[in-house]
């Protein structure tokens, strides 16, 4: 495998591999083939591309029919055109009958939407889907992890959502690193002063923050929560019980995403002080991806100071 240097290529290459290995894989496009650089897929598997034009509700409805008829459809377009425009189709015609449809949402987060602005920049997708029973929701951190998540989730029962970005993500993991399906993954374990919990394209910043904290003598854990549903509640409770305080960092609104999920675990039996970084109940705007994350409170410095603040509350 060559270097998977973007989430969109990660999706595309994994789909090619899956289609080579199994006959049931089909790619459903709502004029979104080029979004994921899917031309090689069309070349190799022309009969397994279902192009529907710009019609996301129809696209998800068609996926429901394809999945009910023995195929494994992958539909990939902008995250919000799936989770918002076709929200009801995802819910009533896929999630409710528990059909095996794979949704791949591009432009997840401010980072994913970068210069496009709010109409193409989705900060609510994970929260919308968390409320739907049967869904598996995955937020891999980089292209290689998207590739691995695609392969790891192919046989999961029911619907799966995989969040991808714009294709401008930094690499966090060496290619070939397995995707930790259904489990949290501890990436740094310096000690129990504070837990930094994150997923997606901000993970590199969180690792950077842990280094800074270490330089200041603060012993942090960095824990990746790439499977947001079903959530590894036991794993999280163990971390939270050990540290007693945590900072969540997500490129998503802090309402209904990772921060909320962690708050639920805390409230239901793993008491800990929590600070949630992410979109503070506001929309984003156009800009370059890294400067957007900076502008909306996800600088390395923001994570460091949130960690200290969370720790200070422990001592109260």
């Amino acid at each position: 495998m060559s270097t998977v240097d973007s989430t969109r290529i990660g999706f595309r290459d994994a789909l090619l591999k899956l289609a080579t290995e199994r006959e049931d894989v089909v790619f459903v496009s709502t004029d979104s083939l080029k979004v994921v650089k899917g031309e090689p897929f069309l070349e190799q598997f022309p009969d397994r591309v279902v192009e529907l034009g710009i019609s996301e509700q129809n696209g998800v409805g068609v996926c429901s029919g394809l999945a009910a008829s023995g195929l494994l459809p992958y539909i990939c377009t902008y995250a919000g055109f799936l989770t918002m425009r076709a929200c009801e189709q995802m819910r009533t015609f896929v999630s409710y009958p528990n059909l095996k449809v794979r949704f791949v949402g591009a432009n997840g987060g401010l980072h994913g939407g970068n210069r496009e602005g709010v109409s193409h920049q989705f900060i609510e997708d994970v929260g919308i889907l968390r409320g739907m029973p049967n869904f598996t929701i995955l937020c891999p951190a980089d292209g290689g992890q998207v590739y691995e998540a695609m392969l790891a989730s192919a046989d999961i029962d029911g619907p799966v959502y995989i969040r991808i970005g714009s294709g401008r993500e930094d690499k966090v993991f060496p290619d070939g690193t397995p995707f930790p399906m259904g489990k949290i993954r501890t990436l740094v374990d310096e000690g129990n002063d504070v837990a930094l919990l994150a997923h997606g394209f901000v993970l590199g910043r969180v690792l950077e923050a842990a280094k800074k904290l270490k330089e200041e003598g603060i012993k942090a854990k960095v824990v990746e929560v790439a499977t947001i549903k079903p959530l590894d509640k036991e794993g999280l409770a163990e971390v939270l019980n050990a540290t007693g305080c945590a900072v969540t960092v997500e490129d998503h609104t802090i309402i209904n995403g990772l921060g909320s999920a962690v708050a639920e675990v805390i409230a239901e039996g793993a008491p800990a002080h929590l600070i949630r970084l992410g979109l503070q109940d506001v929309y984003g705007e156009s800009g370059f991806p890294e400067e957007l994350l900076d502008a909306y409170g996800m600088r390395v410095e923001d994570i460091v100071s949130a960690a200290k603040k969370a720790m200070s509350r422990k001592k109260l």
Binding site: R48, G61, V62, S64, G65, L66, A68, S69, L71, T92
Partner: peptide, 25 residues
Amino acid sequence: LDATTGSLGNGVSIGLGMALAARIR
């Protein structure tokens, strides 16, 4: 029963998915 329905406007898409699946398979 072949399809879950009830919310209006969705059945032709579902039927189309089933019809295209016949072609692919």
